[in-house]
Design a protein around this nucleic acid. Structure first.
Lengths: 368, 368
DNA sequence: AGTTGTCCTGAATCTTGTC
DNA sequence: GGACAAGATTCAGGACAAC
């Protein structure tokens, strides 16, 4: 199950949990080796004393030592250090997700920008079943914030637009995600039957993150692995993962969890792809193959413009000649035009977009 | 209409718009004289070139000089200065709201914390009708973030818990607010019929803020007054207001607007109650939540057809893939198909329509 | 009068491959 | 790396005209 990938002199410990401090552990990994980082750092909650519900039961809040920082300066220094190390590990096409609440997310976001990361979206995880505000002194804190950032301004990044659109039943995915918190059988328990980790994230959240911003075979690093939700979903989705976790108790729970996980089968992992991923087909090929004849007249989608096909795969209209895109843009007075969907031809008395012919060619290419 | 309140040696120019730079104008106001500040500062959007919709129309972007800052350092210095001045003006029981997008809100939040403000909540304004992401390169940017902070840790603040609960049909107001953007008749136009201000906020948003965190007679300051939404809602709700605006054109529009406003305009109040429709549940959410597993086989109601679930919430059958509706329609040779009632899955040896899972999700949503 | 269809617009960090 | 060309890409809602 565990595999090792060698890059230069340094091996990448795929599908394992590294122990120890996250910054020191990251230092052992090579430059530019990671496709995606998902980080759920301590929230620096600054809770004073216990909180009780109206019935006087005590709320089991996050009060672990790892969540306590003396000052904002201490927290910022920590944030600066691990984000810098994370950035070193990212491939030029890599990206990072961080999650936080109002206690820490503003400091995370500002530091991401300071280090040259380029924010792509902030995403609101809207909890469908949050804990109410028992005292009635504030609004119910019903969301957490994620930040998605690429390594640098202008750098490439992975975004499976069509897959997320499909997941949202045909309309493009928005920056607000409504998902339940992690409860029930998904919530891991320790030997005493208490929750194994105070802030276990739901697998649905990671499913959306990893499906949308990684590809199968990508390497996903989680420097605050906890009970391993990132690894679990990565494994199901056929991504490689690396976890870092300081607390032995969490590592043990995560190890056991990951052993149980099975990868989805191949068919299930295929997602809806974008047209951009399809091979390019030059318009001239339609003429060469005789699908369109030189001299044949194409009409615009609305039927108001027309142009004639030439033997070299260009079009000519009254006062302009050029590619299907150029002629279309010129006739419409538009900055650009997708000639494939703009131009139509006639077959059997019907008017059909030329994109249909491109699809035929692509189907043949796929079959062979 | 304009009244003046004397505090020590300095008068408070209630219900007027001050002209000039917001920091200089704030300097003319006395210490500890303001109950609430609502601030909608420039977002520093950093837009580069033009953007066109798929229909080739050009997006009218925010490219005003007042939104341009050379660097993050310049923006931070500006933020630091006006937030410090704002804090001086706040009464010990005062509070501040700031609004921003991912471009600037992390810097706002961090600086609030640095100066000793105490964050009470961050609030997400989820737009019911945001502008889409036209190029399909990111998530639809469908929200903006507000931060609500008191003057200091432990300081008192105003929170009308019951009023907000009532506004929310009897359940605690949450930190995510679904409200439409400002369009239609509410959107102010200039003499040419163009929008008077590029970023006019909806009155519904201010209504919720002022109703929830001020009392009648309180003094509300907006240092980035624009076309005066804060003043308009304050006036309707019987709060006093002070606006600061640098641009003469915006001041004129705001003056005219405020003259028209009457206290307790019942029609305007009605706008704020949000309509609650049956929430749409994308099929993909069943997969994300683990209610159905990628690779699992669904069968048609009559048991004769089957299809496999994919990780992005689409189905795949022998020769077709797509949404639950598309695949159902194709297999039946029908023009359309309601996949929710057509497809079934097996649990505990029984065959159950997937609509049952949707009903579960809706029940959870209604309960929260 | 009511219904249907067209057009317009909104705080936006909005392309990619080849030569 | 820069210039140029190919070509991919949108949702909700209000205003207004057409029917």
């Amino acid at each position: 199950m565990t595999k090792t990938m060698t890059k230069g002199a340094t091996a990448l410990p795929l599908n394992t949990i590294l122990s120890g401090d996250c910054i020191e552990a990251m230092r052992t990994l090579p430059d530019a080796s990671i496709d995606l980082i998902f980080a759920d750092p301590p929230y620096n909650l600054q809770l004073k004393g216990d909180l009780h519900r109206p019935d006087n039961s005590r709320v089991d809040a996050v009060d672990d030592a790892w969540d306590r920082f003396a000052t904002f300066e201490t927290y910022d220094a920590f944030t600066r250090a691990w984000l810098a190390e994370a950035r070193r590990l990212l491939k030029p096409t890599g990206a990072i997700w961080v999650i936080g609440s109002y206690h820490n997310v503003f400091r995370l976001g500002a530091e991401l920008q300071n280090q040259g990361y380029w924010i792509l979206n902030d995403v609101v995880w809207r909890k469908s079943n949050p804990m109410p505000n028992f005292r009635g002194k504030r609004l119910t804190n019903a969301h957490e914030t994620l930040i998605w950032a690429s390594k640098s301004e202008g750098s490439k990044y992975t975004f499976n637009y069509e897959a997320l659109k499909a997941l949202n039943e045909g309309t493009q995915m928005r920056s607000d995600w409504v998902l339940p918190i992690c409860t029930g059988h998904e919530r891991l328990k320790d030997a005493n039957g208490d929750k194994a980790h105070p802030t276990q994230k739901p697998e649905s959240l990671l499913h959306r993150v990893l499906l949308g911003t990684t590809n199968p075979g990508d390497v996903v690093l989680d420097p605050f692995f906890g009970t391993g939700t990132t690894g679990a979903v990565a494994k199901m989705l056929g991504r490689d993962w690396i976890g870092i976790e300081r607390e032995a108790a969490y590592r043990e729970v995560a190890e056991a969890r990951l052993k149980r996980i099975r990868k989805y089968d191949r068919d299930a992992l295929a997602v809806t792809t974008s047209k951009r991923a399809e091979p390019r087909v030059p318009f001239g090929q339609l003429v060469e193959r005789g699908m369109l004849r030189p001299g044949e007249v194409l009409t615009s989608l609305n039927g108001q413009k027309s142009a004639k096909v030439r033997a070299d795969g260009t079009l000519v209209a009254d006062d302009v000649k050029g590619s299907i895109h150029q002629v279309g843009a010129h006739l419409e007075g538009a900055p650009s035009c997708n000639g494939w969907t703009y131009w139509c031809f006639r077959r059997d008395g019907k008017t059909v977009p030329i994109d249909l012919l491109r699809q035929q060619i692509r189907a043949e290419m796929a079959a062979s």
